[in-house]
């Protein structure tokens, strides 16, 4: 997974990068299966690999990316990138330290809240729709707001477009759409 994630950055072709990203998602799903969270693994594949990454690929394939231009910007962004990298490394070190210190008890231990015999879809459903109902609905609301926002931002009405009117098209019958004519020699047919 780390190898494919690294190749996302290092491959020269952006389409290859996206494909490596998909492989990374896929490996993450595999890891989820190994720790026994098969529901999350399937959702990861359906949502990220099946939908999000396809759209990524879609966009990247259609972009005409100039590689030289990308390289030129590299030195300008280097200080910022290094700063971010240092912050992330510090966080990783801190995180490893916290892991050594032992797990943090956040109220009830969620992992052991349900017995192993309950399939983890049910276990997650029980938690999401009872204890975390408010958070769950808030997440849904945020997604709806962002979706509506995106549609409002991009949906500009232009004048003079001629959209398809499907109901009119379906209503049309052969009698009104066609007619038989027998034009005389040398004369055309009026439309």
């Amino acid at each position: 997974m780390i190898a494919s994630a690294a190749l996302v950055i290092f491959s020269r072709n952006p389409v290859h990068s996206v494909l490596w990203l998909i492989l990374a998602f896929f490996n993450a799903a595999g890891l989820m299966v190994l720790v026994g969270a098969e529901f999350i693994a399937m959702l990861l594949v359906i949502v990220y690999v099946g939908a999000v990454a396809v759209l990524f690929l879609f966009v990247v394939m259609m972009l005409d990316i100039d590689f030289a231009e990308l390289r030129a910007g590299f030195m300008n962004n280097l200080p910022l990138g290094l700063l971010l990298a240092i912050i992330l490394i510090c966080e990783l070190v801190l995180g490893l330290g916290a892991l050594r210190a032992g797990s943090v008890q956040l109220g009830v231990d969620i992992a052991n809240a349900t017995p192993d015999t309950v399939p983890n879809i049910e276990a997650m459903g029980q938690l999401l729709y009872s204890k975390y109902l408010f958070l769950f609905e808030a997440a849904g609301l945020i997604l709806v707001v962002s979706m509506v926002g995106a549609i409002v931002l991009t949906n500009r009405r232009r004048g003079g477009t001629r959209p398809q009117r499907i109901s009119d098209q379906v209503k049309r019958r052969p009698e009104e759409a066609t007619r038989n004519e027998s034009p005389e020699v040398g004369k055309g047919v009026s439309l």
Partner: peptide
Amino acid sequence: LYVLAISS
């Protein structure tokens, strides 16, 4: 879900 994931 597996079938759905694979077909996607």
